[in-house]
């Protein structure tokens, strides 16, 4: 099936099998390997991307469902050499260790701050429930999101 998907501002047209997952389309067809795969049951959230501005787990979306959609992956988040405030927050606050969950975590946090610009700690922890991190114990991830929230409000 032929699909056209706009990824990080660039339109891509490809023939894909109907069963191909969006995450495999991004990684294996477009070579955008920043979107990671950490499970096969949609629990871990490592594959989270923005689809038409909203966070989705790209392992639960078929590539054909993204036909005509705009996708933002971690590679497309920084603009003109400027890190997104959430990326900056993760760096400043040591919100990552091995970095494997990080792309998904960052994309979910971007979605969170679009919806709730000034979240409480509890709201952050609740919102990140669909993203698992095994390294940080989440404490510095929470601080990273708080950092970004403050920066984005300024």
């Amino acid at each position: 099936m032929q699909i056209t998907v706009k990824v990080n501002g660039v339109a891509h047209t490809h023939d894909v099998e109907p069963r191909m997952l969006l995450v495999h389309f991004l990684r294996d067809v477009l070579n955008l390997t920043g979107t990671h795969i950490g499970c096969d049951t949609s629990q871990c959230g490592a594959c989270t991307v923005l689809m038409n501005g909203k966070a989705v787990k790209s392992c639960t979306v078929f590539a054909v469902q993204a036909d005509g959609a705009e996708i933002t992956t971690i590679e497309g988040l920084a603009r003109d050499g400027q890190l997104h405030p959430v990326q900056e927050g993760f760096w400043e606050m040591h919100g990552l260790q091995c970095g494997y969950c990080t792309p998904g975590m960052i994309m979910t946090a971007v979605d969170l701050l679009q919806r709730i610009p000034n979240p409480t700690e509890e709201q952050i922890r609740h919102y990140l429930e669909g993203n698992l991190c095994r390294c940080t114990g989440y404490q510095n991830i929470v601080r990273a999101v708080q950092y970004a929230a403050e920066k984005m409000r300024a």
Binding site: R27, T33, L83, F90, W91, G99, Y100, T102, P103
Partner: peptide, 21 residues
């Protein structure tokens, strides 16, 4: 000191095994 490994990891440019083609 802020981590020097982070810039690649927060921008999706890490060198994880499954990324190698």
């Amino acid at each position: 000191v802020k981590r020097r490994e982070d810039p690649r990891l927060i921008t999706g440019r890490g060198n994880f095994t499954d990324h190698i083609r």
